[in-house]
Design a protein around this nucleic acid. Structure first.
Lengths: 215, 215
DNA sequence: ATAGGATTTAACCAAGTGGTTAAGCCGCAA
DNA sequence: TTGCGGCTTAACCACTTGGTTAAATCCTAT
């Protein structure tokens, strides 16, 4: 903690407070207290609240989507990549459960500055990559023909929602922090299987085996 | 508009503003303007901001989860109910896309007052109903053996996330309002199929038909 | 006509907010 | 030792916010 530069300490503190309370709910005073320094120094380094916020927002947005990008551009089959995506996303969320809700909440305010940061992520390209990958696999017959848009959103849904809805999940299943983590582990496996199952071309592989057994 | 009682007008206005900006971001002045009356009258009817907010919050929470309850307690097979759940939830979200994000954002603040309202929804019972239903169908062999917790959360995920992430979806697929709605229609069908597929007991039904064709 | 509740106006308050300023302290390098 | 940049302190400012008050007006049922 004390080893960090002041700039870094401020950013960490701001990150924590903004993720907890959002832009509107966060107080500069809280950030100063969290970073264990005073308001004056905050403004000395990062002039305004908006300024500091946009820095954090862009950072988190980037961190999150560049991870997706990396996995999609990496090696492996489509189904491998999807499993990896889910696993990586859920691990990221386990480490920082408030991340997604933070990003989506602020995006929902539809302030031009946030939307601009979003555009810089080139999600459009990211999805185009995914779609190309999917279509290739469909052509090869490795994967059933499915709607790329829906599939991609569903991958994000399944790996993101449990964290966005964490208080709800805790209440619904009467869980504590520990039970939640073990739930997430189950969820990870079940979700991979759900999508794998969905992508299986017809039921032929299973069918052939069963027929062999019958004969 | 003008036909509504003042109380009602205030509640509608408050609902709109709170859903847009959340508790921290909403201003009493904005609510007054939206309801086309003055701040004094706001406080005359609903003493404090917190007060008004909790009323709205409870209302929306209730409306949303009582709908789920009704479908689960209604007639039909499990798979029917799941399709109905998805369809109903997504229709509700189409009519009011900010609802889920609003509820989840405020729950995430973990203020005791919001959590208390959540507890009143008896989600625990709602889930118990669902689990009992599922287990009965599994016993009858109509449905594959799956984890109830995961399935339930996934149903919520798939029908909720596209709206929570609407700005992201719009950006990713380069859509406008109209394209989004048509996307949602596709999403609705694909999601129903995804879950139906997942719940199918092994691949036996399909298998039998295919074997009949082979013989 | 009039009494009583609904509504408006406008002034006001205290607390909190983001942000500024300036004087001074501290540690370190020249 | 001196000087300088990082840092603190504390006072301060303008503005916003939730909330109050009191007088004035409007509407309507009796």
């Amino acid at each position: 903690m004390e080893s960090m530069s002041t700039e870094q300490r401020i950013r960490e503190a701001a990150r924590k407070i903004f993720l907890e309370k959002g832009l509107a709910g966060a107080r500069m005073q809280d950030i100063a207290r969290e970073a264990d320094l005073n308001k004056s120094l905050l403004h000395y380094y990062y002039e305004t609240k908006e300024n500091l916020f946009l820095l954090i927002f862009e950072d988190e947005l980037d961190k999150f989507y560049s991870q997706l990008q990396a996995i999609l551009n990496g090696a492996g089959s489509l189904t491998d990549k999807i499993s990896k995506l889910i696993s990586a996303e859920m691990d990221a969320h386990l480490a920082c459960p408030k991340l997604s809700l933070f990003i989506l909440s602020e995006l929902n305010q539809e302030t031009e500055s946030c939307l601009a940061k979003l555009r810089k992520c080139r999600l459009h390209e990211l999805f185009r990559n995914f779609k190309a990958l999917l279509e290739k696999e469909v052509e090869l017959g490795n994967v059933r023909e499915v709607d790329a848009e829906t599939l991609f959103v569903n991958i994000l849904s399944l790996s993101t929602y449990p964290f966005i809805a964490k208080p709800l999940v805790l209440e619904m299943f009467d869980q504590n922090e520990q039970a939640f983590e073990s739930y997430i582990e189950r969820h990870k496996k079940a979700t991979s299987k759900l999508l794998e199952n969905y992508l299986q071309p017809s039921h032929e592989p299973g069918l052939k085996e069963d027929i062999n057994q019958l004969i």
